[in-house]
Amino acid sequence: MNWDRIEGNWKQFSGSVKTQWGKLTDDDMAQINGNREKLEGKLQERYGLAKDQVKEQVDTWSRGVDRM
Rank of each mutant, 00 (worst) to 15 (best):
N9K: 03
Q20F: 02
Q57W: 08
V58P: 02
D52H: 15
V58Q: 05
G8C: 05
L43Y: 10
D26E: 14
S14H: 04
Q57D: 13
V54E: 05
L39P: 14
G34S: 00
G15Y: 13
D27N: 14
D27S: 14
N2I: 13
E56G: 11
K38Q: 12
D52W: 13
Q53N: 02
I32H: 03
R67D: 06
R36G: 11
W10R: 07
K23L: 08
S62T: 10
K38F: 12
R5I: 07
L24F: 07
D28N: 10
S14M: 10
M1G: 10
W10A: 00
E37Q: 15
S62N: 07
T19C: 01
E37C: 01
Q57R: 14
A30F: 05
R46G: 02
D28F: 01
T60M: 14
K55P: 08
E45C: 00
E37K: 10
E45P: 03
L49F: 13
G8K: 11
N35C: 04
Q31Y: 11
R67I: 14
E56I: 08
K11P: 10
E7V: 12
K55E: 13
I32D: 04
K55N: 13
M29K: 07
G22Q: 03
A50T: 07
D28L: 12
S62V: 14
R36L: 02
K42R: 15
G34I: 13
A30E: 15
Q57F: 03
V65P: 03
T60D: 12
W61I: 02
I32P: 04
V65S: 06
N2S: 08
V58W: 04
Q57A: 15
R5G: 03
A50F: 08
Q31H: 15
D26K: 03
I32R: 00
F13N: 00
I32S: 09
G48Q: 06
M68H: 07
S16G: 09
W21S: 07
D59E: 13
G48E: 08
G48I: 10
K11E: 15
T19P: 00
E56Y: 11
S14D: 05
R36I: 07
K55W: 12
V58I: 09
Q31P: 01
E37W: 08
R36W: 12
V54H: 04
D66Q: 08
K18S: 10
D4V: 00
M68D: 10
D27M: 04
K55L: 11
G15N: 10
L39S: 09
L24Y: 04
K55F: 09
G22L: 06
T19M: 08
Q31L: 07
F13W: 06
E40S: 00
I6Y: 06
E40Q: 09
Q20L: 11
T25H: 01
M29P: 01
K38W: 07
F13M: 05
Q12E: 06
D59H: 04
N2L: 12
S62M: 14
R36A: 03
